[in-house]
Nucleic acid binder design. Structure first.
Lengths: 189, 189
DNA sequence: GATATATCCTAATGCAATTAGGTATCTACA
DNA sequence: TGTAGATACCTAATTGCATTAGGATATATC
């Protein structure tokens, strides 16, 4: 039998695709083996187990998200940067629903430390430099923005906004306007 | 063999407890059967299948959350009501991590319509009456708040805030202050 | 061309989900 | 109180995923 040329990277890449197509929760080693027309046990030469694969997909997702964020923010500042960063999250969630789910996969502390999550946090911090906040307020603002960047796409893709008018799009840009104003006036009560 | 007296309600209640103890994703019919010292197949007299159980737990969670919201908001208005509603979400997420996860379980349209989710949305709307918004802006604000009420506890319980100072608590109250100010000045640019 | 590595395999085990069909227990009514 | 029917719980069987042990062979290196 000829060898198909599997590798850890090819597996993770294909797993990411499967997650986007069928949902991260439906991602199984068995499905991945079928995708490569290979026996399930063969995957264990490349990944430790199912959790190892999912962790790798999660790290891939966070890294991808952080890449996009860095690219989007480069050369922008103030509200312009804020909107760009926000749209990275929302667009990522729409284009890669499985990876967006994966990004919320529970990581152990060591994985989390080297993940794109930390980089994303730094990028958000950089965006906030346009708003003249104290260090502490900057942390608060990162957390507020992070919550919104996560929560809105989650609710939107869950369909929570699809049963009422107006379009989610309008709420998105209106909310970003409001958050921009909020950040500009953060120091005030 | 004596009968143990199972019922759909007892199963859902126990499933909710198991979800809180071990995580909603670890909730299985097999674990539930073990909990009642009953054979796995016996559960099928009371629930249709695994998905049916999880859906019921999700509806239970949403209903519980909506109950708490209604209770917390009663007799309050303005910022007082806003903070009370926000804390309902955060406290629920901390006291019932499994149920909070369950509340994000994908529901079909008909289940979603009768779920506590719709009620929660109405309660949020009621809280916003203290802020003199147009109907459209009210919808935008509901979505913004909903995103934050979901996103912050998710990130907090994922440990995303535990590797930096200050405490999440401070960011929470600071963010609520900011959101209150935002809502009061919503009409302004 | 020989050898070593690693890739992919077969085989076996355990656990979760589901279905079919049986038995015994509870309940309600005569 | 005794019996009939409903149903609560069971056994048994099938399927699918995860995991491990150990074997065979394609491929790379020398």
């Amino acid at each position: 039998m000829p060898r198909i040329g599997l590798s850890r990277d090819r597996l993770v890449e294909a797993a990411a695709k499967l997650a986007d197509e069928h949902g991260f929760d439906k991602l199984t080693l068995a499905a991945l083996a079928r995708h490569f027309a290979v026996k399930l046990a063969s995957l264990y030469s490349h990944v430790k187990n199912s959790d190892d694969l999912k962790t790798s997909v999660a790290l891939f997702a966070l890294s991808e998200l952080a890449d996009r964020a860095d690219e989007a923010v480069a050369g922008r500042a103030g509200k312009d940067a804020l909107v760009a960063l926000a749209n990275v999250h929302r667009n990522f969630a729409r284009e890669h629903p499985g990876l967006f789910e994966a990004a919320r996969f529970r990581l152990d502390a060591t994985s989390a430390a080297v993940s794109g999550g930390a980089r994303l946090s730094r990028t958000t911090q950089a965006v906030l430099r346009g708003y003249a906040l104290t260090d502490t307020d900057c942390t608060h603002a990162i957390r507020l923005l992070g919550s919104f960047f996560l929560g809105f796409p989650v609710l939107e893709s869950a369909g929570s906004f699809s049963h009422s008018q107006p379009e989610a799009e309008a709420s998105w840009s209106r909310s970003l306007n409001a958050l921009d104003a909020l950040l500009r006036g953060w120091a005030l009560p």
